[in-house]
Amino acid sequence: MSSITPHHFLILAFLLFGVGFLGVVIRRNVLLVLMSLELMLNGINVALVAFSRAGANLDGSIFVFFIMTVAAAEVSVGLALLVALYKKRKSIFTEDMNLLGN
């Protein structure tokens, strides 16, 4: 890579994180909120791997491995919670989950 610096990867990572954050904030569907969370974690992973490669240090790459593990566990638990919630409320939209809000 001649003219691509870690700076490029860092900007891309921030943009991925921002797009994911936008999805978490504006979407009403809990499924899409979970997907956007995955996108945020992916942005962080890109930044970590870029720094790991630029610094010639493997620790960042190994940390990405753990982030992937935790993300998989988080998604499975979140989807199970969503299914349980759907059985009670018959909806997966966040505005219907207002038991405490009124």
Partner: peptide, 17 residues
């Protein structure tokens, strides 16, 4: 999007990731 990120990992020589 995820496949795109995986390709970026290849560009960064992190093949296993």
């Amino acid at each position: 999007s995820l496949v795109g990120v995986a390709s970026l990992f290849v560009l960064l020589d992190a093949f296993f990731l």
